[in-house]
């Protein structure tokens, strides 16, 4: 099992799960991040730590294109720059008060963030229309989920037997399970070395979301049982 690269693009949420005007906390390799959308629906991924007293920004709230910290209301603009300190409304906050943003992009129905210093581009994956299925947290190393997906039989049902599934990994954190006219795209988010989240979407005309969701639950059961052994 090859370890996942520490500096790379990783999915952090299904795009449909982050509503405009909301902030959500999550993790990448144990690093706490906040994923939020401003009221114009632009996604942002930042370090989940308020420069004031270090509280988690994911507990805060979105005001227009600012993210406001819950604790003392400091507000940060889309670049992470502090713009308002309510206790000193006349003061314009110095440039040094800034939340470090991660490079982020929306692609294939998922939000992606880069864990290194890369600032542009996005994951080298071609955009195509997709429908969200679900995100599912799994208590196993992300590498174990990745390699186990390679030989876990695809969902059975009217829209594809388990025999004709093909599996490909076009990026270190993306697995494509394909059958006939549709494919299940699964992005793997490493929360830590022992826990990951699979973000699943369907591309193509076929595919039953509920059946794929149940299939993912079976996968979780299998891979967690193996992780315990």
């Amino acid at each position: 099992m090859t370890a996942l690269p520490p500096s790379a693009w990783y999915p952090v949420a299904l795009a449909a799960d982050i509503d405009p005007g909301t902030a959500n906390g999550t993790r990448l390799f144990d690093r706490e991040i906040v994923v939020w959308r401003d009221s114009a629906s632009v996604p942002h991924v930042w370090e989940d730590r308020c420069p004031h007293r270090g509280m988690r920004l994911s507990l805060g709230f979105v005001r227009g294109d600012h993210l406001a910290c819950l604790y003392h209301g400091w507000q940060y603009d889309a670049d992470g720059q502090c713009r308002l300190i309510p206790a000193h409304p006349q003061m314009s906050p110095p440039d040094t008060i800034r939340v470090p943003p991660l490079a982020s992009v929306e692609r294939l129905g998922m939000l992606w963030a880069h864990t290194g210093v890369e600032s542009s581009g996005g994951p080298p994956l071609e955009e195509r229309p997709v429908r969200p299925v679900r995100s599912i947290a799994v208590d196993c190393p992300p590498e174990a989920a990745l390699s186990r997906l390679g030989y876990f039989s695809g969902p059975t049902g009217d829209d594809g037997g388990s025999g004709d599934w093909t599996v490909a990994a076009p990026a270190p954190s993306l697995v494509v399970v394909g059958s006939g006219d549709h494919a299940i795209l699964i992005g793997i988010q490493p929360l830590s070395t022992r826990q990951c989240v699979l973000h699943a979407v369907i591309a193509g005309p076929g595919g039953d979301g509920l059946r794929i969701s149940h299939w993912l639950e079976e996968f979780r059961l299998a891979v967690e049982a193996e992780a315990v052994q």
């Binding site: 949420a13 299904l14 799960d17 906390g25 993790r27 679900r134 995100s135 989240v197």
Partner: peptide
């Protein structure tokens, strides 16, 4: 709550 997007 990060493991529970539907509940969120």
């Amino acid at each position: 709550h990060d493991a529970y997007p539907a509940l969120r």
